[in-house]
């Protein structure tokens, strides 16, 4: 029996990639998609060749799992609708835009026995796995410093509408790296957050934050920074980066998540770095499908999503108050 999967919301830019990866998985059928915006639903139907259905009709179609790719503020409504009617939910990041929404999502999944997994594909980059291994083996000795970036081009569209996103660059780009740090050091949490957030700094009139620099203290004593800025102009050859440099007593290591790339220069227009190597979206989808099939616990939990969101929200709070925000005593 193929696994029956539905797509709830197609707003997110990753939808196309996740749908493609689902189609590539053996014994997986993408049954249908739903979007509250009927026009967008129809466009997705034509583009992906997957039928667009009303929410209840889709959830009544005997699904095993759904992938939530709606706008951030829509996640709670869709997870609450699906919980108990499917066995598992894969949710795009950030999990939600408030801690209350995130907690409600965790609660409904707990109550209904629905497994909730977050979309943090960066964990699946081979370099990150190698880094985790290196840390576990203690090759660098005690780590003292982490410098990270998750910068990109301003995505435009609904990503700049606070009603749909809950925030701009900081909301968009904080959670990936915070999740990485928590994953690299199991049990470690972000203890304190200070942030400088810039509104319309790089895109005059944008009306939302487009630059963010977070300074973090982790519970293991590591001091860290994270640049979440939409600071790559449209002409820049790479859409987004994930970099992480760790410095320890015995050495240092630098990871460029999208470092495997070649330069493509077309006859006209801008040059682009084209990635090769592991497709982290495919690895994430494969991991999710395996979880649904085997019934094991998710590798990336809703709690992971909530803890990452907490740091993004603390960054906004710090920027408002001008003070560091303590998350852990």
């Amino acid at each position: 029996m193929p696994l029956r999967v539905g797509v709830l919301g197609v707003a997110h830019v990753h939808t196309a990639s996740y749908v493609e990866c689902l189609k590539q998985e053996p014994e997986v059928e993408v049954v249908g998609l739903y979007d509250y915006d009927a026009t967008r639903g129809a466009e997705a139907e034509a583009k992906f060749g997957i039928v667009s259905l009303p929410l209840d009709a889709l959830l009544d179609a005997g699904l095993d799992a759904v992938v939530v790719c709606a706008e951030n503020t829509q996640h709670r409504r869709l997870v609450e609708a699906a919980a108990g009617r499917v066995r598992a939910i894969l949710c795009e990041k950030p999990i939600a835009t408030t801690l209350a929404d995130a907690q409600a999502m965790l609660d409904v999944c707990q109550r209904t026995g629905t497994r909730l997994q977050m979309c943090f594909p960066v964990r699946f980059a081979t370099a990150m796995a190698a880094l985790k291994d290196l840390l576990a083996k203690g090759r660098l000795g005690t780590i003292h410093v982490a410098r990270a970036t998750n910068r990109g081009q301003m995505p435009g569209g609904w990503f700049t509408d606070p009603e749909l996103t809950g925030g701009g660059a900081v909301m968009d780009h904080t959670v990936h790296v915070v999740d990485l740090l928590r994953w690299l050091w199991p049990g470690v949490e972000v203890a304190e957050v200070y942030a400088e957030v810039g509104h319309s700094l790089l895109h005059p009139g944008l009306g939302i934050d487009d630059a963010g620099l977070l300074s973090l203290r982790l519970s293991n004593g590591v001091v860290a920074t994270l640049d979440t800025s939409w600071s790559r102009p449209p002409s820049y050859p790479l859409g987004a980066d994930v970099t992480l440099e760790l410095t320890g007593e015995n050495g240092w290591v630098e990871v460029d998540g999208f470092g495997q790339r070649l330069l493509y220069a077309p006859r006209q227009g801008k040059s682009e770095w084209v990635g090769y190597g592991i497709n982290t979206d495919a690895a994430l989808i494969h991991d999710f499908v395996d979880m649904v099939r085997t019934g094991r616990e998710p590798s990336i939990t809703g709690q992971d999503g909530l803890k990452a969101l907490e740091v993004a929200l603390a960054a906004y709070e710090s920027a408002r108050s001008g003070e560091p925000v303590l998350l852990l005593r």
Partner: peptide
Amino acid sequence: FVRQARWPGTPGGEHALAVV
């Protein structure tokens, strides 16, 4: 705003990350 890490030893280290 600056966070700093210092560790004694041979070789020791000192590293600072500033946000301005």
